[in-house]
Write a protein that binds this DNA or RNA. Sequence first.
RNA 1: GCGCCUGUAGCUCAGCUGGAUAGAGCAACGGACUUCUAAUCCGUAGGCCGCAGGUUCGAAUCCUGCCAGGCGCGCCA
Length: 571
Amino acid sequence: MTLSLKDLITQALQDVVSDLLADVEANKTPSVILTRPKQKEHGDYAVNIAMPLAGLLKQNPRQVAETILAKVQFPDAVESADIAGPGFINIKLKAGGESDIIKDILNQAEAYGCVDNSNSDRVNLEFISANPTGPMHVGHGRGAVVGDSLANVMKARGYQVHKEYYINDAGTQIGVLANSVWLRMQELQGIDITFPDSAYPGDYIIEIAKEILESKNFAHFEAMDETSRLQELGTLAVAANMAMIRSDLKQVGIEFDQYFSEKTLHESGKVKQLIEKLEADGLIYTGTLPPPKGKEVKDYNPIEQRLFRTTDFGDDVDRPLMKQDGTATYFAADIAYHADKFERGFKHMIDIWGADHGGYITRVQAAMKALTGLNTQPEVLLVQMVNLTRDGVPFKMSKRSGTFVTLSEVVEEVGKDAVRFNFMTRRIESQFDFDLEAAKAKDAENPVYYVQYAHARIHAVLRKAEAEGIALADINDVDTSLLTSDEASKLIKMVMSYPDMLQTAAERREPYRVATYIMQLAAAFHSFYHKNRVIIEDEALMQARLLLLRATAQVIKNALALLGVSAPEAM
RNA sequence: GCGCCUGUAGCUCAGCUGGAUAGAGCAACGGACUUCUAAUCCGUAGGCCGCAGGUUCGAAUCCUGCCAGGCGCGCCA
């Protein structure tokens, strides 16, 4: 891979900076960062390197900038470099200096923006992990879409990403599920039952009960003792729910590399072994936890139990790994799970959790630090809650009441593309207000149509050109330096910045940047479209514009693909 | 009480890890279709960047303290 013009300029400046600092005792050399100025008058690139340097060299910034400019050897494509304001260096490129890049875009096609790096560490990306006790709701959907897009973005930038779904198929909620199904089965047999508040009320439970009764008759379960009956029903119900979840996921275009069952951790003895190891390492002691803060605890009775010294590794309080009845806590299984990932060779783990699990981060990280000695494992991304409204009226989602809105329902109403794109338009740290009616509306409020329209519009122009018998010139014969209008320059800059944007999105785990970028790119195109007619008499300029359009369409398509959104050629 | 997240235009949100005059969309107002898709574009108006201090050449961005909202805080998962 050759260095881009931006890299060459950066390098040229960096060399001078190192040179200047050679005589000065500096702890670290400030790095040169080229930015795109907002104002056009400030040139194509701006560098602020003179400012931090001024302090180290004990000169004023403008003076430093002058020294730098006197020494630097810029590449030929640089037209001029001027000092401005408090000490910025504004760099102006020769006309068309960068426009050849759009040829690269077409040559690279689907690969534009991607890097190949098969030597990179493997990354385990765990997301969604919704309990297999019911269908996924829209809140899960946000995590799902964010996780899948992040995986795509990171893969594009050379990470080896392994997508994993952790199935919480052990624990009390499975017992509740099994019992709920059993009650519905009895009900279906005409037996009079009372359905307690503690059971899952959703209609899908009835569906599962029906399914089970179709494959095995009622007498089979009736004859069993309660424990084994609930065990078998739990297994069947989990399988049914997971099938439903997988189908929901397929509907939004998400597939996992691996579904990992919590139950297998218990059955294989991994959880037990983990506790034994921690005991052997002297990380567990007998103690009593203080009462929880904040809320009134009615009948708090202090219990002496075996506690894991997570506070030694940054946690707020030590954590129990075993319940009073001797079974493992969810936490114990979760550590075993993360330890298992580590053993499978993943030194790098990313977990995407809902905001309601925020309090869980420090203890898992503390536990993994204790087990592996690594400091930053795992990385946890918290996705804030989704607030559902219908025409502005809050819509509660609750599995208990059974009135929750499923992801599947929303996808059916709104469409996969709209759901996926909309969920990506905000940073994960901000809560998402999702209005069902607004999301259903196919109007300008839905940004996905805006960007898809840009793509379709380009293809309309290309179709028109074809219909008029205009042959696309060979890429190498097109003179891109003819693209000098303001709108063209902006559009070129946008398509050029795609790889940088992707890199930032991957490094910072911020896939929403892709969505924001596409909207900006689409805006730059629409603006160009209105001011620059493509199919015109001037053959050379027309070919240049056609090339730019093709490059733009390619970038929109590539970027949308990362978000799992289609790029229609006609709308 | 403690921890995490958030607070930017009437509304929904960006703001490229400290840069130059804080930007979009929606809503409001005014323009642009006999010409490649008006699901679009152009313009006008709209801002104590929650509040108060601090750090420095420079702060929406970093630090501290408040205020407001969300989430969480026993052997639930």
